[in-house]
């Protein structure tokens, strides 16, 4: 537990998090690893976890028959998954490890319960997730613009 707490505290996503919050959320954490090609989760499944990546790379993908599109890759020190925060708590894409990936998986049900019980913790989580979500939204907008296309 001490090891997990240290890993959570040292992950850049939780940099500067209050000790008491760190203890609280570490109770929802577990160490996980994914081999290259293994899926963290699939589109449509219940978003019951999110991941703090410690090493490796994960591709966020969407598929149609015979074609898979990678919309973003995330790596070390980043997070995977925000759908656990908002109803209907369902993944909107697949997440596939591109190489051996080590992560901390946070139990979303456990964490949501703790956030409901302590709104200061909930606000703290929101303050950390919102910038990542805004950044990714902005990046997606730029990708949609197709700025490197012929007509730009």
């Amino acid at each position: 537990m001490e090891g997990l707490e240290r890993i959570v505290r040292e992950h850049p996503f939780f940099a500067g998090l209050k000790e008491e919050f760190c203890e609280l959320i570490s109770g929802c954490a577990k160490n996980v690893r994914f081999e290259a090609g293994q899926y963290l989760f699939h589109e449509g499944q219940t978003a019951d976890q999110f991941y703090l990546l410690r090493s490796g790379h994960v591709a966020l993908q969407m598929s149609q028959p015979e074609r898979t599109f990678t919309v973003q890759t995330v790596g070390e020190d980043e997070i995977v998954g925000a759908s656990w925060l908002v109803p209907p708590y369902r993944w909107g894409f697949d997440a596939k490890a591109l190489e051996l990936t080590r992560a901390i998986a946070m139990d979303a049900v456990c964490l949501r319960g703790k956030c409901e019980g302590d709104h200061d913790l909930g606000y703290e989580m929101m303050k950390r997730f919102m910038p990542v979500m805004i950044q990714r939204l902005q990046a997606t907008r730029l990708q949609i613009l197709d700025v490197y296309g012929v007509h730009n």
Binding site: H57, A59, Q61, S63, R67, T68, F69, T70, V71, Q72, T73, G75, L98, E99, A139, L142, Q143, D146, V147, Y148
Partner: peptide, 19 residues
């Protein structure tokens, strides 16, 4: 190097260059 759009067989980075 990163690319804005890729299919599943690309194992490099996908995302905007500022990332």
């Amino acid at each position: 190097v990163t690319v804005d759009h890729a299919e599943g067989d690309w194992h490099g980075s996908v995302g905007v260059v500022t990332a």
